[in-house]
Computed example of a mutant assay.
Amino acid sequence: MDLNNPFDELPEGLVDDLLANSKIISNNMRVKFESVMNNKSQLREKLETEKLIKNYTDLDAKTFPTAAATDGSYTVERLISSDFASVAAVAVEGLTPPGPERRKWPKPRYFSHIDNVEHNEETSQILRGMSAGLELYLAQKAPHDVIFLDGSMKTPLIYLNNATEHLDDGPVGLVNTFIGGKNYYNEDKIPYPTFLDIINAYEEILKSSRSDKIYAALPKYTTKNEICKKLGLNNFEDRGLLNFLLNGNEYLIIPSDNSDSTLHLNINSSKLNEKFDINFIKNKVQNIIENLLPDIDVIYFKPSNFSPVLRIETSKSVTKNTHRLGILFEAITLQMNSLSLMEPYPLYLADRMVKNLSTALPAIKEEAFKEIMNNWNGNLSEIYMAMHGYRTEGR
């Protein structure tokens, strides 16, 4: 395939249809954008009248905070005989701020797990929960002033619930590692987390009560439109609209409606009961759902005229404290000092790292194949067929 020609392997007629439709799409988007631009002054005036738009430079913060970010990924290599399942999360330090601060981590921190498991429909669900849990755990352990998480503050609960709902029918090895951890310590002598460690980390992140540490979630994609509804625009989402309305250094805060009755975490698995005091975990989960998640505010912040508007979710303990809020904005501004960055630098770097997990798994499979082949007395074609991969899944 010619990498310079994305249509190289598509039928010519299909390419023509796609290109013809692209003109229709571009016209529709232009009309939508023009409708905002033509009413930009009036829309911005409505927000200013309600005193929603504020300027970051009015806040008292010149602390040159350090920053880090976490991200996770999982991959399932579907083989004819069984599956290779892998999960990893990394924590990456951001750009070193000016001043006396030094790098806290000379290289990224991580936790990972790889296993050969039987064919099971729930493998991806367990891995997704493990990935979310490892991200939370690494974020909690980071010694930096500001820690960014990829996605919404709700996302870990959703992924953890997807995993806990399938603990009794998921691959035994993965389930046991997800619940009880394993005998592994990273280079900071931090042990691989258990399920309880993950819940504790999630609780601390949502509280964000320590004055020397701020946790902030930055979802890349969102369908939220609280601001648009306020302005009477039903065909836009907030980030898209505010990219037109906000100037550099401006922000606005809106209370997030996190009182979602559908949120829950299924912890009724017999395997969890065997390992932990289930009532203790239930109380923690209830606190997370009923008290901590509803206490999360949403901030829209535009670091500069050349940056996109960011959606930031963080605890009210941060948004109600102008000094801590200023530290958060300063960290974001310091980590987005390049025109090419569409998100804080450590988030970008962590995302790039974990996305390479899917490319590493085939190499691991090949090494396993060579090891088996060197000690196999039967027909090598049997091993080749047994380890043939026909599908790869992951995130």
Rank of each mutant, 00 (worst) to 15 (best):
K355D: 06
E226D: 15
Y345L: 12
F276G: 10
M1L: 10
A217Y: 02
N337R: 13
D150R: 04
K302P: 02
E187D: 14
I158S: 02
M342R: 14
H388S: 08
S209P: 05
D60I: 09
V354I: 12
T177Q: 07
I227P: 10
S338I: 05
G129A: 00
N235V: 04
K316L: 09
A68G: 10
V285N: 02
L241N: 07
E366V: 01
P100T: 09
L3M: 06
I158M: 03
G389H: 06
A216Q: 02
E203M: 08
T333W: 12
G248M: 08
T314P: 06
N305E: 13
P11N: 10
K365T: 03
H144S: 07
E118A: 10
E118Y: 05
V117F: 01
N258V: 05
Y137T: 00
S86F: 13
L347H: 02
D2T: 03
T70I: 00
L134F: 01
N4R: 12
L10G: 05
N55D: 14
Q125K: 12
P106K: 07
S73D: 04
D257G: 08
M385W: 14
F7T: 07
N55T: 08
I281D: 05
N249W: 11
W105M: 02
L167C: 04
A91L: 13
N39V: 01
V172T: 08
P193K: 05
L157Q: 00
I299F: 03
L310M: 12
I288H: 04
D145T: 07
P106V: 08
K23T: 13
V36N: 04
F329C: 11
Y251A: 02
P255H: 06
N120D: 03
S338L: 13
K154V: 05
K275W: 10
I289K: 01
G389A: 14
S358C: 02
I199N: 02
N225E: 06
E343G: 04
T49P: 00
F306K: 15
